[in-house]
Nucleic acid binder design. Sequence first.
DNA 1: CTGTCAATTGACACTGTGTCAAGCGACTTG
DNA 2: CAAGTCGCTTGACACAGTGTCAATTGACAG
Lengths: 210, 210
Amino acid sequence: MSSTTIDTPTKILTATLALLERPGAKLPTMSDIARASGVSRQAVYLHFPGRTDLLIAATRFQDMQNDVNAALTASRSATSGTERLDAFVTAWGNYIPKIYGVARAILAVVDTDAEAAAAWNTRMADMREGCAAAVQALAHEGTLPANVDPEQATDLLWTILSVRTWENLTQTCGWDQACYIDTVRGLALAALAQDVGALTDVLACPDPPA
Amino acid sequence: MSSTTIDTPTKILTATLALLERPGAKLPTMSDIARASGVSRQAVYLHFPGRTDLLIAATRFQDMQNDVNAALTASRSATSGTERLDAFVTAWGNYIPKIYGVARAILAVVDTDAEAAAAWNTRMADMREGCAAAVQALAHEGTLPANVDPEQATDLLWTILSVRTWENLTQTCGWDQACYIDTVRGLALAALAQDVGALTDVLACPDPPA
DNA sequence: CTGTCAATTGACACTGTGTCAAGCGACTTG
DNA sequence: CAAGTCGCTTGACACAGTGTCAATTGACAG
């Protein structure tokens, strides 16, 4: 029974993700979501207090499927600080496209909805910890220049890895995902590890026909 | 007469800017704007077709007062490519805080309103030209590595200088404006001019008490 | 058969945008 | 001075979207 019939909340969350992940989709209303779920609009409110809560639940639902931590903890096993930074940038950078649909919907309401803002900030704070850990690894092995403030270096790495930066380069400028990763990695290594060698190859990947 | 009495459209635009530039303000409704203008809500519609049009008009109104081109053309007179990049980054970076209030309001409706998106894209395309010119100046004097694609370098500079990046560093991370300018300049010089010297001082400005 | 639970239906309140029509006061022009 | 015009006000309305409420249905369990 539990294997054949699908739970209503699950149906709703699945439909929501499907709507959100359609590339170039307009942001769905509660009616859109209900229709896509094959359920009445009120049934949605029966399981989720409101639109924001539903979006946040969709985030968690998606995280369960993707298993964020698996990829990110991999970066924790890297030996050198530089390798660790590299692994973290790659892991997170490749994670962004998976969450972009939902992220976009949440970001769209972030400055009108305090609850959404809080949820997003928490998520970004988690990511920032990864940045901080990478920075600390660099500092520990002496790759990070002595005069730079770790806090500030973390802020910068966090900004370079922001969803907005990914959005700019891949969605607006039409960059290839691989190209984005290479560039962002080069930028991070240049800024934090002063790796001039990394810079040489930055921006050297084939330009997609814009 | 024309000096004592203020034009209604001007009153509306002035009030709109005042609302938009209040730090941390929630996005104003048409009623808010009318109230702040000391005018009826319908009077606003009498002069502006809709909310988006009003925001776009506010942008232009603000540009008249600020005179963008003055600061940006200054960067055009720089002799070396590196100096030019430097001047452009400084000019634009210091311009962002002036337009942020309005930019925030427009960005908030950009993915639901095609007209707003078009206006914003035009504005950003103008800025991108400045980036392209700076990149070309670097390429001309040979500072830009030969293997990098100028288009891609422009995209990257454009992203580094985006309003979102400024927002992340100064609003979310609480950075000082001067610190933002220094960092972004260092990042640009590192990425495009491979200037290791610039990197040394990146992230060396005093951290504001977050 | 009865109670319970999940879901449906349809109504409603509220906010915000945008439209419409009638009215009003001040100023111009015959 | 009367007539008209212009800019603005007032108040009503339509519409979309969110969120709430109450009555009803249908299935399933004791």
